[in-house]
Design a protein around this nucleic acid. Structure first.
Length: 233
DNA sequence: TATTGATCATGT
DNA sequence: ACATGATCAATA
């Protein structure tokens, strides 16, 4: 029986990818209860009210700096952190939020300048065992993967982004459903379905609409993991 | 049961 | 309101 250790301070921002990866790999195998305790936190009791809890804990644990800014989490090295919930079959359970969809002042915006491209250019994926039956506290962190899209993936993501943003720029936001896009999709991203934000309608006039976000489909992250494992053999 | 649309927490 | 961190839960 060991006495509980004192909470540890959040580390400074990592200065290199290697430093970040080393820290992330050191988290592998830890339960969420263990990681929480390390930083003096307790595991939330109600999963409904714990959405995003783990992601924010890991930001602290790894020294992320972007907080709620529209930038990659590790600003110095341009790396985005994404936790990835894994089901009982070893595949991602959920789509992955990327960033907000710009609904105004977006004409002329290119893929190259887009936040989607900047965030997905370099991602540290951190898998977490998340089978429905497994309590939050008992879930374990998996092996971190530092990833960039290959040429084919980037091309497909760019085509999705261009198709979707074309519709947004034409004021066709209300026609866009989650069914559009091969790998990237646009879905609501709001407190509730009554939330409103500024947008532009088909006439180019100011309007109000439900805030939306870009998400990576589960199929994309599933393929990404499968490819990595295949390549590691 | 996979997916879409809805929702919860925190900080500025 | 808007950005981040996401998962929930009704529906197809």
């Amino acid at each position: 029986m060991t006495a509980p250790a004192d909470p540890v301070a959040a580390p400074p921002a990592p200065r290199t990818e290697a430093e970040l990866l080393q820290r992330a790999e050191a988290l592998g195998g830890l339960s969420l209860a263990e990681l929480a305790a390390r930083f003096g936190q307790s595991v939330p009791r109600d999963p409904v009210r714990a959405k995003g809890w783990f992601g924010q804990l890991v930001e602290v644990a790894l020294g992320a700096t972007a907080a709620s800014l529209p930038e990659p989490d590790f600003q110095l090295i341009g790396v985005e952190l994404k936790s990835l919930p894994i089901d009982a079959r070893g595949r991602p359970k959920e789509s992955t939020y990327v960033c907000t969809v710009p609904l105004t002042d977006n004409v002329g915006l290119t893929w190259e300048d887009s936040l989607v491209r900047r965030k997905l250019a370099r991602v540290l994926w951190l898998p977490v065992e998340s089978a429905a039956e497994r309590p939050l506290a008992e879930r374990r962190i998996g092996t971190a993967l530092l990833w960039s899209p290959d040429a084919e993936e980037e091309d497909a993501l760019r085509r999705d982004w261009e198709e979707l943003m074309d519709m947004v720029c034409l004021g066709e936001l209300e026609r866009i459903s989650a069914r559009h896009g091969t790998w990237l999709q646009i879905r609501p991203k709001a407190a509730d379905s009554r939330a409103l934000c500024a947008s532009t309608d088909a006439n180019g006039d100011a309007a109000l609409s439900l805030p939306r976000g870009f998400y990576l489909r589960t199929r994309f992250t599933a393929r990404l993991l499968a490819r990595h494992w295949a390549g590691a053999r």
